[in-house]
Design a binder for these strands. Structure first.
Lengths: 147, 147
DNA sequence: ATAAACCTTAGAGTTAGCTCCAAGGTCAAG
DNA sequence: CTTGACCTTGGAGCTAACTCTAAGGTTTAT
């Protein structure tokens, strides 16, 4: 089955960004069109959509375009040497992702407690600000052992 | 017990950013020193450290300084009206945080599968790139129903 | 008492990530 | 066969978030 190809404007509209941004990503080496038609128009296939979704996801959680480019460039090969390199890079990124997950969970908890404290209940404003809410969700982490 | 107060340079070093950045955050209304000494030096207390940690966490997971400022400005009051406003704002942010959590989990899974595929095993390179790894972790979400 | 290591301000410069503009080619509809 | 909505390129402009520079005050150590 032949892949459906999308023009830049359609892809842009579908994923809610501008054609300019797509051309910018191409210039930055993040996303190249699957092909160009004879008149020079860019055409994107499903593979590019997947790639673009990944780019947007990663951007949303705070990765820079450069980091995303590195992630997309990763290739696990049979070559032992490059494999070890890739693994250590991936493991570093995993640490990073895990930290972000923890940060997000903390923020989520404080937002939840804020949302719950708000209105509705008879006991209004237990935690009045996000920082108080955050302190309320804190288990007890008092240490600064990482530089 | 009297709070320990920290000079700008000490705080900067402790949280691994520059004094310039701290002054910048002050100018942006994100973080004001607890007090100024007679010579104009800024002094920060534990409360400011907590606030700064929140700022850095939120920044790390992709919030802008402006969004962070709004989050820090939130106050649940007894006033019904403002309370509803706050709640809807907080709930929006919660949606946002939940999306980020999902994105991060997806990325984490693909990194894990990439790390596992790499070296070590007898079956090398099952998923060679992050996108293939990502596709491998996909349950089956084929729909574009939002916009 | 003077040098090193801090701190202050105001403002200029930098980088990332777009975003817009000008000048022009393409194509479907009427 | 032209009008309007697309697409192309190159390059200028913009905003966020720093980062640096200049000119100067303070504090501590010798």
């Amino acid at each position: 089955m032949k892949q459906t190809l999308h023009k830049i404007g359609d892809l842009a509209e579908a994923l809610n960004l501008s054609s300019d941004t797509l051309r910018y990503y191409e210039k930055q080496g993040l996303l190249t069109a699957a092909k160009r038609s004879s008149n020079g128009y860019r055409f994107y296939s499903e593979a590019e959509i997947g790639r673009l979704e990944f780019i947007l996801s990663a951007k949303k959680v705070g990765f820079t375009l450069n980091e995303i480019k590195q992630l997309l460039a990763l290739e696990v090969t049979k070559d032992e040497k490059s494999c070890a390199d890739v693994k250590s890079f991936v493991d570093d990124k995993l640490d990073d992702v895990n930290i972000r997950l923890l940060e997000l969970e903390r923020i989520k908890k404080s937002l939840l407690s804020l949302s719950a404290a708000c209105c509705g209940g008879p006991e209004p404003a237990t935690h009045c600000t996000i920082l108080e809410a955050l302190a309320g969700t804190e288990v007890s982490s008092k240490s600064g052992s990482s530089a």
